[in-house]
């Protein structure tokens, strides 16, 4: 498999969750988010999986690995937010750590894109 094909696979793994995160962030900021929202439920599952070593499917594991040395991402904090997303209405305290996670995913996507372009 070529390098560009391989990196496109990693990018795809990250992109889906980055999109989900941005949708939920906008809903939270706009005050239009409820605990039963499908996107919010999916994000809650993702955050819980990211915080649980050895949990989740392959794409979760890839993302978890990529973020594991990221100082801006605290798995325990993400797990807590995962619980809050499932249980309560919007809370502004969730936004800042989720924003940091979104920035980290964006950074990983940028690195992957740079690798593809370098070799493409």
């Amino acid at each position: 498999m070529s390098q560009i094909a391989m990196y496109s696979g990693v990018y795809d793994e990250i992109r889906e969750y980055a999109e989900l995160l941005d949708k939920v962030l906008m809903d939270l900021k706009g005050g239009t988010s409820g605990p039963q929202d499908e996107n919010r439920q999916r994000l809650a599952e993702l955050l819980t999986s990211l915080a649980t070593p050895g949990a989740g499917d392959l794409s979760i594991r890839v993302i978890s690995f990529l973020l594991r040395d990221d100082a801006g991402v605290d798995p325990a904090e993400l797990a807590k937010i995962g619980k809050l997303l499932k249980a309560t209405s919007a809370d502004n305290s969730m936004i800042e750590p989720l924003e940091r996670l979104a920035q980290s995913l964006q950074q990983e996507q940028a690195v992957t894109m740079a690798r593809m372009r370098m070799r493409g």
Partner: peptide, 16 residues
């Protein structure tokens, strides 16, 4: 307040 999300979505669209 949504400009960060907007910029990220823009970049993803370009990459796709």
């Amino acid at each position: 307040l949504n400009q960060r999300e907007r910029l990220r979505q823009f970049k993803r669209a370009i990459w796709q």
